[in-house]
Simulated assay, not measured.
Amino acid sequence: MYAVTVTFTLHPGTRAEFLPLMTENARLSLENEPGCLQFDVCCNDAADEVFLYEVYDSAEAFDAHLQSPHFKSFDAAVADMIAAKTVHTYAEVIQ
């Protein structure tokens, strides 16, 4: 299991345009990427922050996600809406 968290800080006034693009990216990831197990899009009361929680089979499945046409299209469409983006990745600890 490979977990990814992403926190977007959006430019003011862009959340209404950003969220439909983000949720479509999440939907397509779940539908078209066999290694994508979970893709949650979350918001808090701050209008400029969006948080993602994604789970993949492996780091390779996440890399495939980043190369997918729908992700590349999404990434290009929202680039000017993003003030900051923080990505963290976590591999499962197997004991």
Rank of each mutant, 00 (worst) to 15 (best):
N32K: 15
F39T: 06
A46D: 14
D48C: 01
E92L: 08
V50Y: 04
T86N: 14
T9V: 07
G13C: 02
N44E: 13
D48P: 01
V6I: 10
V87A: 00
A46F: 01
Q38W: 10
Q38A: 14
P34W: 05
A3R: 04
H88R: 14
H70N: 13
V6M: 02
Q38T: 13
H70E: 12
N25K: 00
P20E: 01
Y2W: 06
G35L: 01
F8Q: 03
L10G: 00
I82H: 10
V93F: 07
E17Y: 03
C43L: 05
L28H: 05
H11T: 11
E33Q: 08
L52Q: 00
N32L: 15
V4F: 02
E92R: 09
V78G: 09
D80G: 15
D40C: 02
V87R: 06
C42L: 10
C36L: 10
A61P: 08
S58Q: 01
A16F: 07
Y2T: 08
S68R: 15
N25H: 03
T5N: 01
Q67L: 15
F8L: 07
T86K: 15
D45A: 04
V50T: 10
L52I: 00
A91G: 13
A79D: 12
C36N: 12
T9A: 04
T7L: 06
L66K: 15
E24Y: 09
F71W: 08
L30P: 06
G35F: 01
E33M: 02
A77C: 05
V78H: 06
F74E: 02
V78W: 07
E60N: 09
L66P: 15
P69L: 14
L10K: 06
T89A: 12
A26V: 04
F62L: 10
D45S: 04
V50M: 05
M22P: 04
K85G: 05
S73A: 14
L37R: 10
K72Q: 15
H65I: 15
F62I: 00
N32P: 07
L52M: 07
L21K: 09
Q95F: 13
